[in-house]
Design a protein around this nucleic acid. Structure first.
Length: 546
RNA sequence: GGCCCCAUGGUCAAGCGGUUAAGACACCACCCUUUCACGGUGGUAACAUGGGUUCGAGUCCCGUUGGGGUCACCA
């Protein structure tokens, strides 16, 4: 059989150049010794998974820490899953988390194009080469054909797939091939696998350590019937020509590693290093599973933006899962930027971590507590601009007022910063009582109405806006005493039954009356911020509601 | 089901042949405190299981069990 002729018949791409051309076009990168070239290679589905950020962070850190390159490649070989504007989503999502690419799709770079669909010519050149060498062949099997053999294999407990005796098109005669071609039958190009599943090798995975890989014996599809490569083929070609040195990817790829190893070998390419990291999991009923795009809102990166999680918080949490010694480092050097941490691929966990939003929240609170009031103002405002309702947007009309609110709620100026704010959404809800437009209290006192009324009215009669905190509190105590409440905590603790309550209960009533809440920062300051008029109005409103 | 990966408290995890088995989150108690928080102190809680190897095993080996991943013209 004339394989050169066959190759031309099968892949009539006029743009194909001799193989040397590509090797010179994409030369070895000139980088310092030890520098790693890594990448993120998402599909443009319009959905960015937490796992995308997770793996991006690992690749980014390793590349930049080693003086290498981190680039973005778009794996758009699946027409069905492609979504308009998806690349924009990829960029904006990662930009929010400050993950920076050195080159790649929609950026500069000498190793492009970075969209796989635009690289057809290269794939075709190499597919042709394999056909010419007799290492790839056309397959005319229909979906039904494949389904049938799969059924047979399953019934007979055989390894499923297209291989060996089941690879019907492997040994098609020249006449049969050209007859099929003439009949216009659609075809794919398959690799003629030289592997043997009985043969196993030890492979060094950068995160898992030494693992066992079985040789591939599947005649995998390398070019689909539309001439577009499958992931496997594109991966081998692209990571070779983009000169990737290290591939950190999810462990769901581990099982196709044998295919990739064979492909690199068959193409004559040097295999990059691989590290397969575990996916983030979640408890679902009795068992755990991968965070699911469909079932778990927190699987989506947009979730964190909508909730207004600070990007550093999410990144920090990802880092604690990514590198086991990161948290300790962070606790030791709370003021150092993330980038100063020495990321180590060897410290990546071998087993999948459960996503723990409580832990994220804790980290979030700590990060939020490092912001200044103006930084917080800007952060909340930008969240509100994108996701807030009209009322929340209006909070920013009076900047000075908002800054006073934030200063109080963040505990700035106090001995220790407060850690009430978890994310922008929650923070905005937490401060809504400062704004009459959203102030809709549900008064729930732990004392009977008469008692509350007496106390509120008693306080109102003595409250003077200009009082300092000490004077103010003396008045609270006086009101408490008038109703028989204890002001001496020691006396109260000694015999709680001797009093209807203590001064903290009185403070609670006043707090509920002015804010509608049990938990708020210092009440005196709240009243100072609200202003005299509004404070009285709130007390009146509370009394009227009794 | 075949193949591969994994296995220390509820969660993330340190440990890499000899430790009273760290630390963080969560939880509980107490302290601080006019309130709410923050903070501080202490506490509950773990080496899946059975065999080996060894003077000695969470650590090495094998089996079992459990969990996860994967078996496409999807990535």
């Amino acid at each position: 059989m004339d394989l050169n002729k066959l190759a031309d018949a099968l892949i009539p791409d006029e743009n194909v150049k001799p193989l040397d051309y590509y090797e010179t076009l994409f030369p070895e990168r000139d980088l310092p010794k030890g520098a790693q070239v890594t990448r993120l290679a998402p599909s443009p589905t319009g959905f960015m998974h937490l796992g995308n950020l997770y793996v991006a962070l690992a690749n980014e850190r390793i590349a930049h820490q080693s003086g290498g390159v981190f680039y973005l490649r778009i794996e758009d070989t699946d027409e069905k899953r492609k979504v308009e504007g998806a690349v924009e989503v990829i960029h904006s999502s990662l930009k929010y988390f400050d993950v920076i690419f050195d080159e790649g799709a929609d950026l500069c770079g000498n190793y492009g194009p970075y969209y796989q669909r635009q690289r057809a010519e290269i794939y075709h050149a190499y597919a042709k080469e394999l056909i010419k060498k007799g290492l790839a062949y056309p397959c005319f099997c229909t979906e039904e054909d494949l389904e049938k053999t799969r059924e047979y294999q399953t019934e007979n407990k055989l390894l499923p797939g297209y291989y060996g005796e089941f690879a019907k098109c492997r040994n098609l005669s020249e006449e049969e091939i050209y007859a099929n071609l003439a009949a216009g039958k659609p075809y794919v190009i398959r690799l003629k696998s030289q592997g043997d599943v009985e043969v196993k090798h030890t492979f060094h995975d950068e995160v898992k350590g030494d693992i066992t890989v079985t040789e591939n014996n599947q005649d995998v599809v390398i070019l689909k019937s539309d001439g577009i490569p499958t992931y496997h083929f594109a991966h081998a070609i692209d990571d070779h020509f983009m000169r990737t040195t290290l591939v950190i990817r999810g462990e769901e790829w581990l099982s196709s590693l044998p295919i990739h190893i064979e492909l690199f070998k068959t193409l004559g390419f040097h295999l990059p290093k691989y590290g397969h990291n575990c996916s983030i999991q979640k408890v679902d009923g009795e068992t755990r599973r991968k965070l699911s795009k469909r079932k778990d809102p927190e699987a989506s990166l947009t979730f964190y933006r909508e909730q207004g999680y600070h990007p550093t918080a999410v990144k920090t949490y990802m880092m604690t899962l990514l590198n086991s010694n990161f948290e300790e480092w962070m606790l030791k050097f709370p003021d150092k930027p993330l980038d100063e941490f020495k990321y180590s691929i060897g410290k990546m966990g071998k087993s999948g971590a459960l996503f723990d939003i409580l832990k994220l929240n804790d980290i979030s609170k700590t990060i939020m507590a490092t912001l200044s009031e103006t930084e917080m103002y800007d952060f909340l405002k930008s969240w509100a601009d994108d996701f807030g309702n009209e009322a929340q947007k209006s909070y920013f009309a009076d900047k000075d007022y908002m800054l006073r609110v934030l200063t109080l709620c963040m505990g700035i100026g106090g001995k220790k910063r407060r850690k009430d704010f978890v994310c922008a959404k929650q923070a905005m809800e937490m401060i809504d009582y400062f704004f009459d437009s959203t102030f809709a209290p549900v008064y729930e006192y732990r004392f009977d109405k008469e008692t509350v009324k007496t106390i509120l009215q008693g306080f109102k009669a003595t409250y003077v806006y200009a009082d300092d905190m000490q004077t103010w509190f003396e008045k609270v105590k006086a009101v408490a005493t008038a109703s028989g409440f204890a002001t001496d905590m020691k006396a109260y603790k000694a015999d709680p039954t001797a009093f209807p309550g203590n001064v903290s209960d009185v403070a609670e009533m006043l707090r509920i009356a002015t804010t509608g809440l049990y938990n708020t920062p210092d009440l005196w300051t709240i009243m100072q911020i609200l202003g005299e008029e509004r404070t009285f109005a709130r007390l009146d409103k509370a009394v009227a509601a009794l």
